[in-house]
Structures are given as C-alpha cells and as structure tokens.
Design a protein around this nucleic acid. Structure first.
Length: 208
DNA sequence: TGCCAGGCCCTCTTTAGGGCCTT
C-alpha cells in the first residue's frame, strides 16, 4: 500500500550507474532527485558517488561522468545514507522504474537501510497515455511533449527533472484529455500497471 | 568453457521469441 509522508508529495529520481546489472556488481555513481509537491519542485537532491572501482570508457562517454570526477566523490555508503533520509517514506517515480528500483534496493541493502514508499513508472504510464509517441525514451518524450529542457541527458539530476516534467504532462493529460479529476499517485500507478488492452475501458470507468 | 539484466509488451504467441527501455 502506498505510503505518503505529505499530501500529493512524490520524489522523482534517477540513477547513473556503472552498468545495467545491480545484482552482478554494478554500482550507482550518481543520484539525482526532485521532490514534487502540488506540481512544483520544492526540493532537490544530487550527488556523485565513488563506487570503489574505475568505471569503463563506455559509461564515461555515455554519462559524461569521468573517473577523475569520481575520484574525490563521497562513497556510495555516505551518499545513500543521506538519500535514504531524503526519501524517507515518500512515494517514488522513475523512468523505467524497475531499473532504478533495482539499484535503489541494492544500494540500500549494502547499508542496511530500507524505505517504505511505492514506485511508479513514467515509462509505463507514457505507453498507456501517449500511444502515438514515436518512442518512449525519456529524451524522445521530452521532444514529443515539447518539455522545456537544457539539452542535458544521462545526468541524474537533469533526467530526474525531465522525468518530473513528463510526469506533470501525463498528469495534465489525464485531467484534460481523459476527464479524470485530481488523479493521485495511486491512480497513476494503477493506470501504468493496467494491461494496454484494458486501458481504454479503465480510463472511461474512472472518468465517469 | 561460455555465458553474462530484467521487466514489459507485442505477435508470425501462450509448450516462444524478440524489441523496447534503463546504464
């Protein structure tokens, strides 16, 4: 059951990591997050973190985060303890949330911390609500929805801010395109998890 | 030795395979 620390407050987060496999030794190297309340960013969290080993060239090129930048960064334990305090029991949103959830779970397991919030996925929600989008990559959706952006991608805070803007666009779409008044986190999560074949029927039911 | 993520979703499907997403 979703647990909210304050009404309509969610935290949108994004990890940059050493690779795709949290359960095969990959670690987080950057975390960025914004706290959304009433459709406005009211708080931010951002930090690089030193994973304890050198990252490969692909990740350096992909993220723009170099080994030199990580050399003097605080370690994952320090950063993730601070981040665990930041998220507390908030509900969480990420683009392709299963990826970020795996890394959040893995990093918090390393430091024996837990969180009680629930995850929702902007990628799944986008696939339900904007089925005509040419792609559901974050960068493509920013362009598709003409979301204001400084052109920075694959950095944690920039991607978290872009995902937050996307989340608000999808929220607005639910209200104005589908006639659903005051959709909350639980409803958006339900829509995101509903099979595509059933989404039209669900939206009509909710709108009534 | 060789392999190496995992969940969602579609279809030429469901006793499966492959593309899309995340780094």
């Amino acid at each position: 059951m979703p647990i909210a620390t304050s009404a309509n407050s969610i935290i949108v987060l994004d990890f940059e990591t050493t690779g795709l496999s949290a359960n095969q030794g990959d670690r987080a190297i950057e975390i960025g997050a914004v706290k959304l309340q009433g459709g406005i960013i009211v708080d931010r969290f951002h930090s690089l973190m030193n994973p304890g080993f050198r990252i490969n060239r692909f990740i350096e090129d992909f993220t723009g985060i170099s080994n030199n930048m990580l050399k003097d960064a605080p370690d994952c334990k320090t950063v993730m303890n601070q981040f665990a305090d930041f998220i507390q029991n908030s509900n969480l949103v990420a683009h392709n949330a299963s990826f970020d959830q795996r890394f959040l779970d893995a990093e918090l397991t390393h430091i024996q911390r837990r969180y009680n919030g629930s995850f929702a996925c902007s990628l799944l929600l986008s696939r339900r609500l904007t089925q005509d989008a040419p792609s559901h990559k974050l960068g493509e959706l920013v362009r598709y929805h003409q979301i204001k952006n400084d052109g920075i991608f694959h950095r944690a805070l920039a991607d978290a801010e872009a995902t937050a803007s996307l989340w608000l666009v999808l929220l607005d779409s639910l209200q104005h395109d589908y006639g659903i008044t005051n959709p909350d986190f639980s409803l958006m999560k339900k829509i995101a998890k509903t099979p595509k074949a059933s989404i039209g029927k669900l939206l009509k039911t909710i709108a009534i």
